[in-house]
């Protein structure tokens, strides 16, 4: 299993701290997560709140093992920037997908699922299913 390639996960937030912390949380909660390439892409290049296309592209390239990259986002410009980059066609690795999921819960589900060696479809489905997790 350890030689198997894992789906990459990119976490895009308006805040660098949020993206990095959610990446740490998701990896910490998932058994075998050390094999899963996870990269945060938070804030702007200057360290402010916002979205950076450059950071997103760099993060996706860093986690791409050739079996797909799942991108989770918080809101607004994070969503729109990833969509625009995917529509561009040549900025992100082949098989990069914006996953429709809640940011924190979806990230945990995505990393846990990717750690099992699941494919991109399964990672996407697990992350999206996190919307169904009710708290009351």
């Amino acid at each position: 299993m350890s030689d198997d390639k894992r789906v990459g996960i990119v976490l895009v937030s308006h805040s660098a701290q949020v993206a990095a912390s959610v990446a740490e949380l998701a990896k910490g909660l998932a058994g075998g997560a050390e094999a899963v390439p996870v990269a945060p892409a938070g804030g702007t290049e200057g360290g402010g709140l916002g979205t950076s296309a450059e950071l997103i592209c760099a993060a996706a390239a860093a986690v791409d093992r050739g079996v797909g990259v799942a991108v989770l986002t918080d809101l607004g410009s994070a969503v729109l920037t990833v969509k625009a980059l995917i529509a561009e066609g040549d900025e992100l690795p082949e098989g990069t997908r914006l996953v429709d999921a809640p940011f924190v819960e979806g990230a945990v589900a995505a990393v846990v699922t990717a750690a099992t060696g699941a494919d991109l479809d399964a990672v996407e489905a697990a992350a999206a299913e996190a919307y169904g997790y009710r708290k009351v």
Partner: peptide
């Protein structure tokens, strides 16, 4: 359009970037 998507940092970047591209 490509530049706007890269550099704006807010929702107007991908929106105006997509418009021009």
């Amino acid at each position: 359009g490509r530049q706007l998507i890269s550099t704006v940092g807010g929702a107007s970047g991908p929106l105006y970037g997509t418009l021009l591209r």
